[in-house]
Structure formats: structure tokens, C-alpha cells
Write a protein that binds this DNA or RNA. Structure first.
Length: 248
DNA sequence: CCGGTTGTTCAGCG
DNA sequence: GCGCTGAACAACCG
């Protein structure tokens, strides 16, 4: 689950903010004292943050995680919270207790969906990694918090960049536009997901044919992270420095 | 129906 | 301590 989906999660949880917890069961960390009241719900990157009176839970949905509000699946939830006005079930996620110090250490300037996101701060962090491939830096949660593999591929396509280009190969302008695209694509992803039209807006991700030029999409693992990249070697990787990648 | 995968952490090694 | 690799976890979709 990528950053924009966590904002939708936060919004789905809004009816329970400020509500008393009637019942809590499942995988509750040992350090948790009492989940009395859910004070507020935050999202940062791919983290869902539930702030209670004296405890804070960090939810990470990883690849297969999900949640249901006022509904349940056939299997046991990892965590279940019951409020006076409804309930929420969490499945296949990581539930971790964090301290107030850990909460205050979150850097909102790199959270792609945050009002406090800061283009210059992110650009600077990215520029500090000139030898890294763009596919790896985009997925680096300490630079682009909330950016996942779908977004990586679509952002690279939109900027017409080869996944294996190095940050240092980009012009100053190209790097700025990449950072800016990460931000704007996050919001596009959010709106498309809410509208149920995310999949049909993919240009290359899990596509056989490039949505732009109609030529075949290349599918291979790239970078140190070795996550799957989908790219069009016709539309992407045509700048002189990057041509060698396209031909490799 | 089977295989890939919207992700992270940790053990083990050199 | 570092970089890197592979394993482990997990459930849904096409």
C-alpha cells in the first residue's frame, strides 16, 4: 500500500477520531498499557499512525495488508478496534507501538502527501545520492516517503527517464522536475484510487504495450532494490547519457 | 489454478 | 560497522 492509500485510510478512520475504544483485541504490542481513546489518526509515507491517550500504534500494510471499516473477512483480523459508532479490522499488517519521541521525529517535509512537504528539502536529499539509480532513490523512504513500486514506474515514465539512470546523470532541471512529478503523481494516484480508475491510468506498470507510443514495455528488475521495473525503451532512456542503458 | 507481487526486516557473510 | 544477498512473511488478483 503506497502513501496516497494511507491518506485514504486516515480519512476512512476519521469517524473514530476522538472516540472511546470499547474493545481492542488481536496483535496488540506488549508495551501497550490501555487503548482508552483514539485521539487522532495520522499518515506519514506508508505508515498509519493511531494516537491514543497513552499509546501510539504504527500500522504498516506492507504488500498484502488491508483493513475494513464496519465489515469483516472470513479470517481473524490482526487487530480489531471497536468504537461506539463502528469498528475497524486490520489484516496482514505490521502493528508496532512507538514512543512520543518517535512520533515527533517524523520528518513531514519528505512525506509526499503532507501539506508540509518541501520540494527543496527533497531535492537536496536526492541530490546527495548522485551515484544511485533513480529507481532506487525514488523507492528510498528517507527521500520520497510513501512512494512505492507502482508510483516509481509511472513517475519515471512521466519524466521519460530510464530506471537505471543515475541521479548524477540528470540535469539540475531534470532532477527538479522528477521531484515535482513525485509530488503531483502522488495526488493523481490518490484521486484516481478514490474514483476507482487507478489501473486504467497506468502507462507502463504491468502493461505489455506502452500507453504512449504503442511499442512493447520492457519488464526487468533494476537497481540494488531489485524491484520490478516496467519501462518503454523508446519513450524512456533516449537522452545521450542514458542510451547505453536502453541498448543494454 | 498458479504465479507474481502496491514491502520491510533481519540473519549471515565477507 | 558496512554493503550486499537471500529468506521470511503473507493473501489477493489475473
Amino acid at each position: 500500500m503506497e502513501g496516497p492509500s494511507l491518506v485514504i485510510f486516515k480519512e476512512d478512520m476519521a469517524p473514530f477520531a476522538g472516540k472511546k475504544v470499547i474493545e481492542a483485541w488481536g496483535s496488540i504490542p506488549e508495551s501497550v498499557q490501555a487503548l482508552k481513546k483514539l485521539k487522532k489518526v495520522l499518515s506519514w509515507g506508508k505508515h498509519g499512525i493511531l494516537v491514543f491517550d497513552s499509546d501510539i500504534l504504527r500500522i504498516h500494510f506492507l504488500m498484502f495488508g488491508s483493513y475494513l471499516v464496519n465489515a469483516r473477512k472470513d479470517r481473524e483480523p490482526k487487530l480489531s478496534l471497536v468504537f461506539p459508532n463502528g469498528f475497524v479490522n486490520f489484516y496482514t499488517c505490521s502493528v508496532k507501538a512507538i514512543s512520543p519521541a518517535e512520533l515527533s521525529a517524523y520528518d513531514w517535509s519528505i512525506d509526499l502527501m503532507s501539506p508540509d512537504w518541501n520540494e527543496k528539502a527533497v531535492r537536496k536529499k536526492a541530490a546527495e545520492k548522485p551515484g544511485r539509480m533513480v529507481c532506487d532513490v525514488l523507492m528510498d523512504q528517507t527521500v520520497f516517503a510513501g512512494l512505492g513500486n507502482i508510483m516509481k514506474n509511472e513517475i519515471l515514465y512521466n519524466r521519460r527517464l530510464h530506471p537505471e539512470a543515475r541521479i548524477g546523470d540528470l540535469s539540475s532541471k531534470e532532477l527538479t522536475l522528477l521531484v515535482r512529478e513525485a509530488r503531483s503523481y502522488s495526488f493523481a494516484f490518490y484521486h484516481w484510487k478514490l474514483a476507482g480508475v487507478l489501473r486504467k491510468n497506468w502507462a507502463v506498470f504491468r502493461k505489455r504495450i506502452c500507453g504512449g507510443c504503442g511499442q512493447s514495455v520492457t519488464k526487468r528488475e533494476t537497481g540494488i532494490g531489485a524491484r520490478m521495473s516496467y519501462y518503454c525503451s523508446h519513450c524512456q532512456g533516449n537522452s545521450p547519457k542514458l542510451r547505453s542503458f536502453a541498448e543494454a
